[in-house]
Design a protein around this nucleic acid. Structure first.
Lengths: 187, 187, 187, 187
DNA sequence: CATGAATGAGCCTTCATTCAT
DNA sequence: AATGAATGAAGGCTCATTCAT
């Protein structure tokens, strides 16, 4: 529980994150000075809220990460272990391809915000549980470990990006690639 | 056939490429001024040989790229279409993971040097022929096209990198991932 | 109406312009890095205030340009159209010869600052009105148009510069040349 | 009398001057490296022939300068002092406006080549003699001295350039300006 | 808390000139 | 004589971060 922000500070925080989101969507490299100018705020204000570019980036990625974690939990409710894993991975890949804030955050080995670490942990552990369940059900090869899931999803997203085309076009490509991989992971 | 370089110029060229190789291996971002300093040469000399960072990077990647292309041709001599494709992809992934100069060059959509375009084309077309042969032999799924090969190899290399560990440790990881993918591509 | 500068920023602005003025008077080519060093400021500060050399140059020229424009307006109050035109051109030439920041600004076809464009426009239009009046009064040849005034003043200033000697010595020379020209323009 | 060049050296000399002429006509700033490349020669060769940019520039300007000087001499044969002066100045201005190599050479106070100094002297002295004759004939104001001629011609050429438009369009403008000036110089 | 001016290291690039081959 | 590789000073500009107001 962090101290709740004063109302104006909260408004600034919001503004900053919104601007950052826009910049990321535009493909513009995230620069705090830039964000400040576009948000109509002083650089200092931006730095107060987000000491580094990474902190801001992770904040932008947070909602999406939260949803991924939530989906992971919901997936565990699915009776079918294979379908559950499938859906989870599909969702993960889709998110990575559609939201430019995710790939760098997912691939980073160190996080700027504890919250990010938590969320990545939650996603990771959801994946782990789904994978374990699938393995115990005998539907997944034994040599795939939970530590492979995130890298593999990052890899697929990367592959779709390298393939080229518009961001929208990358979604089906990524799904095709995921399908291949799942086929290969199937026991 | 370019005019052969003068002996001293050739020595400098060599020196520059060697230094660049080292920097890349160290993970240091390639900067021409930096290269010049380390090579004990004037900046102008480096710029004369390599007008852009990309040109130097591609030059560093060239031997490896050449070998990949050569291997592709040799692979076609293998009677077994599946084994041939397998070996080719394995080699490609291994190269990408072991040589830090390759991933950016492979992923780039535009090349600085014509030679790079040629070599990438050669690798690509080797992959294409190997894939076609495998498909005709009925050992590969129909929905995998040759345009997918490079992205997929980049993706696997990326996945292995995200997985972490020392560069050396990434090799077996990448191979594991490739195995999964190949399994999935198998008809 | 721009936001007024903070006191310290205003002091720096002033310092920069002063240094630039000195450099121009010395005949040293204007370079922003140079200005920064002499002003004891960081380069970035200079770039913040003046994004390009031209912007700084024009700023240095502004007071003089302002005065020329003002003089143009005052000249229109003179009853004698010929004397009024005369005085205006005389003043213009004198300014160009005495202030090294003017010639490049006057001769430039594109301006860095909107303010410069305004001021040049004001000077130009004052000249135009004075010329029109003189022509209607029948004291000036019909084939001289207002578009000729600025080029001609630049030409005279240039001629005086080519003639050589100290900057101070150029003033009388320029006036002599202007006298010749005016004689030629007289109807 | 300089030692005559070896045949190949003479060919190179020619080539260099031709290329320089082209560059000047294109408005490209004259750079010896550039000249060398375009001429298909080594930089060293260019430097051997022309130790500085100015030397090359003056060499390019030489034919035109020679012709001006020659014309000056011919003008003295004209019975009418005013018409002679007129024609000479007209020719001078026209040359300056049409040939981009002239203005910098004419305006320079120091020359790189003795030959240039000679030629400029010849032009200058032709002007002087024409002016003196005109003055003695009472057709020119007494306060115009021969030291004014070159600066004034440079000024007019400069004015026409400032006026803008294509190089070709500058010719009539320059003539108009010269006409005004001559009117003013007329006694 | 907010501001945004200032900083200055750091990178990129060009070009006149020299000199070994 | 000719060559052209090498030099490296010089200039341009950006941007992450600090700190006085």
């Amino acid at each position: 529980m962090t101290t709740p922000l004063r109302k104006d500070a909260a408004r600034n925080w919001e503004r900053i994150v919104t601007v950052a989101r826009d910049l990321i969507d535009e493909g513009t490299p995230l620069q705090l000075n830039d964000v400040a100018r576009r948000a109509g705020l002083g650089v200092g204000t931006v730095y107060r809220h987000f000491p580094t570019t990474e902190a801001l980036l992770e904040t932008v990625a947070t909602p999406c990460l939260t949803e991924l974690a939530a989906h992971g939990d919901r997936a565990l409710a699915d009776d079918d272990p294979w379908r559950a894993l499938n859906g989870f991975l599909s969702r993960t890949v889709q998110a990575q391809v559609s939201d430019a804030s995710l790939p760098p955050v997912m691939a980073a080995s160190a996080d700027a915000l504890p919250r990010t670490t938590e969320l990545k942990g939650a996603v990771w552990s959801a994946g782990e549980r789904l994978l374990d369940r699938a393995r115990h059900a005998g539907v997944v090869r034994a040599d795939v470990t939970s530590a492979d899931l995130v890298p593999l999803m990052c890899g697929i997203a990367h592959a779709a990006t390298v393939h080229g085309g518009t961001p929208a076009a990358r979604v089906p490509t990524a799904h095709r690639y995921l399908t291949l991989l799942l086929e290969g992971m199937h026991a």
